[in-house]
């Protein structure tokens, strides 16, 4: 259990790794917007090419990308089925009893799958794969800092995220230990009815809660001892700086979005 790593950060030094985490947050949002700008086969084609280029730029192995797609395969399949069988259009491709498949349906299915694929790839490439959770937390805190003025607890939220990230591995370790200890007293977590199995979790959950509260209490004291008093008057050791790379990246992203819109205007093929 010691070796679980949080999130899916893939260490590296690619162009995308080196970008400012705030910019990556913005870029991933823009990229998602871009995927919704596509309307026809050419713009979707460009979108697909861009996703491939991004994967190559980040130097993340393809197998890893596929792994992040796997959990949503069911959703993809569902989307395909819905679109193919329930979209009606003008060009009938296939007919059998009550089943009618139209070209529009097939195109819609392809477009939707592409869109979801790009969504996942975009978010995971810019954020989870190339940015450490702590950098992401910093980015959220600094990007949303202006919201503090309208009383949004941005600092508190970021601090909570940091502490959660810090303690998840500790608590996983602890769960492991408590399970072993209860197994040593003959507890059985694997057999019996569903209700019995749920009941068997009580000897794990109660000690886990108790210890979490104890930890929280001790951590709070330790933080107080280190003069923590909320975000007010607090400075940071590492301040994020945008660099030329970040500005180039956002320019490319905007150009990309504009070209998608322009490509939609070419009346080629089916338009979604």
């Amino acid at each position: 259990m010691k070796n679980i790593s949080l999130g899916q950060y893939y260490p590296g030094n690619s162009v995308i790794h080196r970008m400012d985490p705030r910019m990556k947050l913005i870029l991933s949002l823009l990229y998602i917007v871009c995927s919704f700008l596509c309307r026809n086969i050419i713009s979707f084609g460009l979108l697909f090419v861009s996703a491939i280029v991004l994967i190559l730029l980040s130097r993340i192995p393809m197998s890893l990308i596929m792994r992040s797609i796997r959990p949503i395969l069911f959703i993809l399949a569902f989307t395909v089925v819905i679109n193919i069988f329930w979209t009606s259009g003008e060009t009938l491709l296939f007919e059998w009893k009550f089943i009618h498949i139209y070209l529009e349906g097939v195109m819609n299915a392809v477009f939707m799958v592409l869109r979801i694929f790009v969504l996942i790839v975009g978010a995971s490439l810019f954020l989870t794969y190339t940015t450490t959770p702590i950098a992401l937390t910093d980015a959220i805190e600094q990007l949303f800092a202006p919201l503090k003025r309208i009383k949004v607890p941005v600092h508190e939220f970021a601090m909570m995220m940091t502490i959660a990230l810090r303690f998840i591995p500790t608590l996983i370790d602890e769960t492991d230990k408590i399970m072993s200890a209860q197994k040593a007293r003959g507890a059985d977590f694997t057999s019996g009815s569903l209700i019995n199995r749920a009941k068997a979790l009580i000897p794990i959950l109660i000690p886990l809660f108790v210890s979490s509260f104890r930890r929280a209490d001790e951590l709070a004291t330790a933080m107080e001892c280190r003069c923590y008093h909320g975000g007010e008057g607090r400075t940071r050791m590492s301040i994020l700086h945008y660099r030329a790379l970040d500005f180039i990246a956002i320019l490319i992203m905007i150009t990309f979005g504009v070209s998608l819109v322009l490509l939609n205007m070419l009346g080629i093929g089916y338009t979604m």
Partner: peptide
């Protein structure tokens, strides 16, 4: 085997969970 070889793990007090000591000792 676990009943024949009793194992007390490190800091075993953190595994107590019942409402009373009596009930907790009775768990095994």
């Amino acid at each position: 085997i676990r009943f024949r070889v009793g194992l007390v793990m490190q800091y075993p007090e953190y595994q107590l969970f019942e409402e009373t000591i009596r009930a907790d000792i009775a768990f095994g």
